[in-house]
Nucleic acid binder design. Structure first.
Lengths: 361, 361
DNA sequence: TTGTAAGCGTTATCAT
DNA sequence: ATGATAACGCTTACAA
């Protein structure tokens, strides 16, 4: 604990007034009229002594700790945690609050222990973040404190949450490829049965259908969501020149990394011979690949912001609604250099005439 | 603030004893002998009511908040922040503490504001972390509270710090290459004049000299520390087949990414034609590249742990030494598949006979 | 073995 | 316009 030591009492003594008065001037108490002269003196003494209010005492008295907790399952190993934290922190700061962050490592026991630790410290509310989009159960201890979920949904309609708009991402990816002129598409999806996999595929298919693409011209393969998985899937897709998609959408940037490698091995140039769209806009990958990867960004920062705002709203309104708000946020597509119109003639195998629907989406 | 509401007073009432007694049994107060029977009753009532101690009150009374702050300059955009946070949190947990994390974005003003916020909340101590190894000045507000630096050094000898052992990393990288048989080496260094650049080069050169490598067989080039920089430097190094290094050490994994690309363009196979060693062991890059990158890991987690331990030590010893401990931590080398013995005959240009000094380091 | 009461640093009610 | 004083929920001498 800081050796602050200088308390309101000392300021009062130094200024020759009561602590009540000091409190009044320091807090700009509304109804109170205090003499400009004493006000000056108090302010001066407080500054001179380097007075810093003890928020523990304030919190104990006011029943507001100006503190929130952020519990995440995997803050260490995911590049996205930082953005969520930052989003939450930015709004916390604007509410004079600061955030405790705890990691649970997917251990229910650790989670309970850490949440307990936060509750003991009287946090005003809790942000519960998943590092990959998934449905979760609200931990029991969170039933009686304002809570909002980040990157997670919940069957309990009384809890608010923010998730990425996976379907919109899938649509946007399709649009990028389709509007560039591609008519033979492939989607390399994650084998795991998670919302991101369902949503992205659904959106991708929907937009493709809207462009009139036939079923046979949209191949979907699944693989492990890493570079090796992307590589294998891409070999499957690209090996046969006759039946080759000209545009590939990857479940994530890491898989795209593997697709780049497969393309290179087959002497296929990106984007001249294959266009590629990724997902995540993962730092150091999307922008580190060559050529730069066009990808759909995940709105981690924005989810953090939305969730924290909603949390502070709940905190100040002192009551949790029976039906809490929910949002799915669309991430922007980050255009780089992995998409180009299909090579001359490479679309001949397509069953449909290219139709320019640019701007028509 | 949680609607705890159940206080020690209620437990006392329910158990038909005084709050003192409740406090005694709940805290296992040493000298106190309390009747097993009342102890049972208190424990039972506390459990039944779901009593949770209010740590704000405890802290106010005991002058220990069981809370520390972690201030970092860039937690959002670096993949390393998470590991530092995790290391710090792991030891914090073992000391019944939890950590506030704040981001400063390299803004001195934000930094001051956030540190102030932490001090107001009576944190027991502060961890000050830089996201890339560098010397820093201790913020003035930190002068009177236990503080330890992570990934940063400081001219003030009264503050403790932990940094990576850059020179050891450079040595280890050299050792990997040399012991694999390489005798024509290159180091692609960061142009920026930072401790990491100096230290890694120094260590690399030192170990090379120890192996008897001549000056001319160790080329050092500098570039921007990103994939593009690595690519350019590698082209410089690899274009001329006659004067080609067989082993390249890169300042970081991102540069190595560019080196892979350059090699591929020149039809050089890794590791058959060039061996590559990176630095950082950056998630998704070192292990995502193909073949997997052999690299020197940065000890972020360990620095977080060391620093937090030292911090808690200072906190409990209630005094800051005039000369604080300092450590530089050696990161392990992570062996993957980017290093192999040089190709038959590729060492002919070398001025020295290969000497097997394996295990001799 | 158990209870009384003071005090941690504030805010807020009520007097003056 | 300013000041006593009682909480806030807890720990800890000190008493009983």
């Amino acid at each position: 604990m800081a050796q602050d030591k200088v308390t309101i009492k000392q300021v009062a003594a130094a200024a020759g007034v009561s602590i009540t008065t000091v409190s009044h001037v320091l807090n700009h108490v509304p109804g109170k009229r205090i003499h400009p002269h004493t006000r000056e003196r108090v302010l001066a003494e407080a500054a001179r002594l380097g007075y810093t209010p003890n928020m523990l005492a304030q919190s104990l008295r006011t029943q507001r700790s100006h503190t929130i907790g952020l519990v995440g399952d995997e803050i260490a190993t995911t590049p996205f945690a930082g953005k969520i934290i930052l989003g939450a922190q930015d709004v916390a700061t604007s509410h004079d609050s600061v955030v405790f962050v705890v990691n649970t490592g997917y251990e229910r026991e650790t989670e309970d222990r850490e949440i307990e630790a936060l509750l003991r410290r009287q946090v005003d509310g809790i942000l519960y973040a998943a590092m990959y989009h998934r449905p979760v159960e609200l931990p029991a201890k969170l039933a009686n404190i304002p809570t909002v979920l980040i990157n997670a949904s919940c069957a309990d309609r009384s809890v608010a949450w923010a998730v990425p708009d996976e379907a919109a991402g899938g649509e946007d990816a399709a649009e990028v490829l389709l509007s560039a002129g591609h008519r033979r598409l492939a989607f390399i999806n994650d084998v795991d049965e998670i919302p991101a996999a369902f949503g992205r595929e659904e959106g991708f298919r929907r937009r493709a259908a809207a462009w009139g693409l036939a079923q046979e011209d949209l191949r979907v393969v699944t693989a492990e969501a890493d570079p090796a998985g992307g590589y294998e899937a891409a070999r499957l897709l690209l090996d046969d020149a006759a039946d080759r998609p000209s545009g590939i959408f990857c479940f994530n940037d890491r898989m795209a990394m593997g697709v780049y490698r497969a393309a290179a091995e087959l002497d296929l140039h990106v984007p001249r011979d294959v266009s590629i769209v990724g997902f995540d806009n993962q730092d150091f990958i999307a922008d580190g690949l060559h050529p730069g990867l066009t990808t759909v960004e995940l709105p981690h920062y924005e989810m953090g912001v939305w969730a924290a705002k909603e949390l502070f709203h709940q905190i100040s309104s002192e009551q949790r609604p029976a039906l809490a708000p929910t949002t799915s946020i669309r991430g922007p597509v980050i255009h780089r250099a992995s998409v180009a119109p299909p090579a001359q003639g490479s679309d001949l195998g397509g069953r449909h005439q290219p139709v320019d629907r640019r701007g028509n989406a």
